[in-house]
Design a protein around this nucleic acid. Structure first.
Lengths: 345, 345
DNA sequence: TTCAATTTTGCATACGTATGAAAGGCACGA
DNA sequence: TCGTGCCTTTCATACGTATGCAAAATTGAA
């Protein structure tokens, strides 16, 4: 209940040195003699003193806070991101201030204002889009921004993504190689670059193999919407796809659930299902989903690298990092071995 | 790239007023005339000025930052918490600074030090335990703390939890009512109060009905550990439970997966499985898990209430809020209707 | 021992804002 | 016209720390 803040001045008095000495003791990379060092340490311990980061920030202009904007943690890709990102930054002496944004874009602009108010040293935008003028404004105020799992036309913004287009193509090629003929696609929210790129890659892959998309529905990255999309796509028994690419794993689970438990279809015998992300439930036996892995660890490392580089050198050029995504083959797709047809066994 | 910070003094000059006037304009609840109000607004807009929260904090002693300590977002109960908590606080003008802690306890103490360095206005401890002396220290420094989904012996700490013991009892009663005879329990991490209380309630419920726990294994709140636990518990076909309570949903999914896909057992026909939390996948058809609902919204509201009350009045007494958890009956438990045995259909 | 070179220390100031106290402005009634 | 009371504004200072600069102390070599 004692609300007595202990300051560097208190420590200085007790230790019989100047406030500067105390400050220097707690600032790495400054010279302070062994003698005073011990005096300060002793006094600081006795009083339970710790430097006030807020006051320090005011001087140095460094808050050691990174703002993270995230829209929905419902997709289990993002909790992993928050955890890894926060941990990695923590190890480097930074911390993450979370801003939850709605899907509406204006909201993001308002939130970014709030972020800037906190004098953050950098911003990570995940699962949220930002208006170009606001991006420009952040840039103008000298705060580095990294788009995570997002791309924007503005080339001045750094971004870390997987190669979503290549991923979509890989999935198309793989499904074609399994002998599938009728392809469905369940899309995410229209404004997202991940949605756009994955679909584009998937279509390209199909067309290169002489196929094309048969059916397309929109699931908006939400479980419930994806269920609806699956019902529409597979409702007409006569015109069903025999393979469906769902824009992310989260929605793929919804689709599989509808196929199996509402429509009585077997996965993969009747329909092959593939997703994107490789979130933890994708490898749980109940889903066992074939998907493209987004390596969260690598993405986070690149994000932090980019961010800290730009914090250290404001003149550093922006980077666009595109990571390869590995195809993870599991049990939600038909077996690749066509041998049984010939009866060789 | 222009790194020119615009301060209240700049605005004051442009508007032809004093710096105080600018400060008052941006401080709600202060009196400022309509005339200067407009001058300031105009100048501020022209320069793109926004008050520096860091500098403000130094004066007011209020950072409007709440520290959140969380250990693992792997359990999908916590992402919901982070999202709801952050959003609710955002609406009240606060923001959440995230601290990821390992499971080790010393780590939490170090992290709490870091939190205090940021001069947070309050702390929420979720999925992490804190040493008593550190709790005392936080208390001493006047920073309110709320334990979320955790209890501690120290009565001075506020806490918001579900009634875990009552929940465990409800589950026991329900399983008994279904006619089960052999009961298994898969425990969480030993140090957690949720683990302890849920198990205690479950045992009480069984004993009140003249039953007792047959088998017990430890899953440590982790998917993989829970799989192992399930293998041990159900490995011996002659001594299997016919109902199992898994300490949280996250582990329950692992157990169901092992039962169905490794051991070929049917849920609920061969074994009834119940969990705790009611995370989103619990209602997905693939699991369709009977469980106790922890109402995240209510828990968050109570947490924020408690926190803001104590921030507003440091002398406010600590609160312990215990919320009721509803039994959600789904398809992972045997049908309550014993009629088929008599062949009435 | 002396002096120059080097390290350590203290002093003073700055960071950007909030706020109590004092001064200024205004309207109103006498 | 003058004085009284109230609302605005300005002035000055404080919050807790970092840091350039100059003074002091230490070191090392001659």
């Amino acid at each position: 209940m004692k609300n007595e803040k202990v300051t560097s001045l208190d420590v200085a008095k007790l230790a019989g040195v100047s406030q500067s000495a105390v400050s220097r003791y707690f600032t790495p990379g400054t010279s302070v003699s062994k003698k005073t060092s011990e005096k300060v340490k002793k006094a600081a311990d006795a009083l339970g003193y710790r430097p006030n980061i807020i006051a320090r920030s005011l001087i140095t202009g460094q808050s050691r806070i990174i703002g993270l904007v995230v829209a929905y943690l419902e997709n289990y890709f993002y909790p992993e991101v928050v955890e890894r990102l926060s941990k990695t930054l923590q190890d480097k002496g930074y911390h993450v201030l979370v801003f939850i944004s709605s899907l509406a874009a204006e909201n993001v602009d308002q939130i970014t204002q709030e972020i800037l108010d906190y004098q953050v040293d950098g911003i990570v935008l995940a699962s949220a889009n930002m208006s170009s003028d606001l991006a420009a404004r952040c840039h103008a105020s000298g705060v580095p921004i990294v788009l995570f799992n997002r791309l924007q036309d503005d080339q001045r913004l750094s971004a870390v993504t997987s190669d979503n287009r290549a991923g979509g193509r890989k999935l198309a090629e793989y499904l074609v190689s399994l002998g599938h003929k009728r392809f469905g696609y369940i899309a995410g929210f229209g404004g997202a670059s991940t949605q756009r790129d994955r679909e584009q890659g998937f279509r390209e892959g199909l067309e290169l193999a002489g196929h094309s998309l048969t059916l397309r529905e929109v699931g908006n990255f939400r479980y419930e919407d994806a269920q609806e999309a699956a019902r529409r796509m597979f409702g007409d028994a006569g015109h069903r796809p025999d393979a469906v690419f769902v824009c992310n794993d989260h929605m793929a689970f919804a689709v599989m659930d509808v196929l199996r438990f509402e429509l009585g279809l077997r996965v993969p015998e009747d329909v092959s299902v593939v997703g994107f992300d490789d979130v933890p439930p994708a490898r749980w036996p109940a889903y066992n989903l074939t998907t493209i892995r987004q390596n969260v660890d690598d993405m986070v490392v690149e994000t932090v690298d980019t961010l800290l580089t730009q914090i250290g050198d404001k003149a550093a050029p922006s980077r666009r990092v595109v990571l390869d995504g590995e195809l993870i083959v599991r049990g939600s797709t038909r077996s690749p071995n066509p041998a049984p047809k010939r009866g060789t066994r």
